[in-house]
Design a protein around this nucleic acid. Structure first.
Lengths: 197, 197
DNA sequence: GTCTATAATACGATAGAC
DNA sequence: GTCTATCGTATTATAGAC
């Protein structure tokens, strides 16, 4: 059906954007390459995203935010202890990077670094994705008994640390930054958690 | 003198690269714009960097690595306690971001995200810069009594956390990620440091 | 309403003037 | 040896064919 195929193509474009942006950055990914990657004809990009690359980038950022937000939620659903869940995400990311030969980074970080200083719309879209993740992390920590302020700062630490560690791991082609950092982030959480009980 | 002016122009090109890459990313920064920013004529880019943009990117990365490496060293020279020095760097970065309206990120991270998956040379250049910073951090921690393994993992944590926090701060246009994360990184260091004495 | 052909521009890189 | 003019190509965006 037409409506079905429309949303399929649109969805494939968003997925292709997410893949290419984390691979080559926002500016390094061309629209033609993106359309080809999605198996979509050239004109369909401007059919689904009349605002051009900026609109596709903003919606890709929203898409990626939901996608990885769901992954965070799944991790917290899987482990009772939020520290354990967060370290598991670090280790999972290390395995993902190894499997892709350290090519697949974070699409939101990639869009942020290329666009935050030149496009208010794209910067705001990235901020929304990060804010969603921080809220999921904070909620899980509060559910484990963390006071709101402690939950917020620990969420900042965990998200900052994993974003940075992904970059170090990609540059060095090594899982060590993710493994070492993940262990210490968990320790920081566990140490504070002792006083919540 | 000719030799003097040559190195001046070359140096201005490297500084312009460092500024533009952290502003718009590696792929988003054009060579023409970069030459204009440096006040250098168009041809001089290929005079000083026959390898073109890739060579300029790699040498800019080395340049930035030394520049910020010196800043890390200065912080450790200023404070006896490495935890205090590291938190000071987080807070300094927050002030720098505020002063630039959250435009000036880390040039090495920007080059890494745009190039690590497509250029082995540039990836390796970024890895060298990060390795230099990790070595400076590790050395300062060991000088304060940290065992080698603890120094290494704490250096990973501190560098990962500040790189990630810069990205979150830029996206949100807020100093909070740097302030909150810096405080917890310092706590993690201080807590371990108690057992070194 | 989809898609192809093309426009307008910016890119990195080079060749040639001085 | 320095710089200017230009090349070929890739970019984003649009217009028009079907």
């Amino acid at each position: 059906m037409s409506a079905r195929r429309q949303s399929d193509t649109r969805d494939r474009l968003l997925r292709a954007g997410e893949r290419l942006f984390r691979l080559k950055g926002y500016s390094g990914a061309g629209l033609k390459e993106l359309g080809a990657e999605a198996g979509a004809p050239w004109g369909s990009i401007y059919h689904f995203f009349p605002g051009g690359k900026a609109q596709l980038g903003a919606e890709t950022t929203r898409f990626g935010g939901e996608l990885y937000g769901a992954a965070w939620r799944a991790a917290f659903a899987r482990f009772d202890d939020p520290g354990e869940a967060i370290e598991w995400v670090f280790l999972s990311e290390a395995r993902i990077l190894e499997a892709s030969d350290y090519r697949n980074g974070c699409p939101i970080a990639a869009v942020t670094l290329d666009t935050a200083s030149i496009s208010e719309d794209l910067r705001a879209a990235c901020a929304s994705a990060f804010a969603l993740w921080l809220e999921i992390l904070g909620e899980a920590l509060r559910a484990a008994g963390a006071p709101p302020e402690a939950a917020e700062s620990l969420a900042y630490l965990a998200l900052s640390a994993i974003e940075g560690a992904i970059i170090l791991a990609r540059a060095a082609k090594s899982p060590a930054p993710l493994e070492g950092t993940g262990r210490l982030v968990r320790q920081a959480i566990d140490r504070q958690a002792a006083s919540w009980k």
